[in-house]
């Protein structure tokens, strides 16, 4: 065992990268849940985003176009969920599961010819002299544009939810769809938009895994990140800032166990690999006691006649 082989600067820089897919996916789900919709299809939308982004990036040679395609792909799949839950009034839990099962299969189908292909690399943002600051430079100023975009998106979502009329309406729909409907807000339309935002974000998160973090395509490569993102929303009590904190915590754990694997710690690889999932469960247990922060209409079906 050689713990000195873990470079703390690279470790911190690495866990910022590991946290980014979680930030995107969880942030999208947070917005959907704020509107009162529980979409368990995050994993499916992520993997669809991962392959859409990967395929587009490989074909066009532009990673940024890949990310755009990933957002479109994720949002397109989420429209299926919106149709099921908002138009045909299907159970949200079952529909979300259907989305995940379908997404895993469909992504495998799309990705057949992309196994083993190397995607084009997304260049680091050029911060000039900032990059050369010791320690802080490599940690904060040596990443791609999408990572910073993820951070910015958290700030934007927080501000929109807290300070704007649109955010207020979204929260109203999530707290009481009947009251919001009585006030004349289009509950179904607002929820559909929130679901699509969630899908686009999950798609971006998936593409971040396939284009930057790994970077290659393998079947089922999201490996439960979508589910951890769902847990993260609970962890964050539906608050964007706590979500950021949670994502860094989980990113840190993931990165730490990978580094420990690399350093040859005496713990078998399999037990290290299960640690993020076990820690997710532990965190859920600790935080489950307080459910008051959850949107009151979360998971309930809305129909104007009832």
């Amino acid at each position: 065992m050689d713990l000195s082989s873990i470079n703390p600067v690279l470790f911190v820089a690495g866990f910022l990268v590991a946290a980014t897919p979680l930030i995107f996916a969880a942030l999208g789900e947070l917005v959907a849940e704020k509107s009162g919709v529980l979409n368990l299809g995050v994993e499916g939308m992520m993997i669809i985003g991962a392959i859409c982004g990967f395929a587009t990036a490989v074909e066009t040679g532009s990673p940024l176009l890949g990310f755009a395609a990933a957002a479109v792909g994720g949002a397109a799949l989420s429209l299926l969920f919106a149709f099921l839950t908002q138009i045909t009034l299907a159970n949200q839990v079952a529909s979300g599961l259907a989305l995940t099962l379908f997404g895993l299969g469909f992504s495998a189908l799309l990705g057949q010819s992309y196994v083993g292909v190397k995607p084009p690399r997304l260049a680091e943002v050029n911060f000039g002299p900032l990059h050369d600051i010791p320690v802080l430079g490599p940690i904060l100023f040596s990443h791609d544009i999408v990572l910073y975009f993820g951070f910015a998106l958290v700030v934007v979502v927080w501000a929109v939810l807290k300070y704007t009329r649109a955010g207020l309406i979204l929260r109203a729909v999530g707290e009481s769809h009947d009251a919001a409907h009585a006030l004349g807000f289009r509950v179904v339309r607002i929820r559909t938009l929130a679901i699509m935002f969630g899908g686009a974000c999950a798609g971006l998160g998936g593409a971040y895994i396939s284009l930057i973090r790994v970077p290659q395509w393998t079947e089922g490569m999201t490996a439960g990140v979508g589910w951890i993102a769902l847990a993260l929303v609970v962890f964050a009590s539906w608050k964007p800032w706590r979500l950021l904190l949670g994502a860094y915590l989980f990113g840190g754990i993931t990165q730490l166990q990978l580094n420990l694997q690399g350093a040859g710690v005496a713990i078998p690889v399999e037990y290290l690999a299960m640690s993020p999932y076990i820690i997710t469960i532990l965190v859920l247990v600790v935080l489950s006691a307080d459910k008051s922060a959850a949107p009151a209409s979360l998971g309930r079906t809305f129909h104007a006649s009832s």
Partner: peptide, 19 residues
């Protein structure tokens, strides 16, 4: 994978028709 998609589709249609 096409069969996996096929099975996923089945659940979709089931949920939709259940309306």
């Amino acid at each position: 994978a096409a069969i996996q998609v096929f099975q996923g589709m089945l659940l979709f249609f089931l949920l939709a028709f259940d309306l």
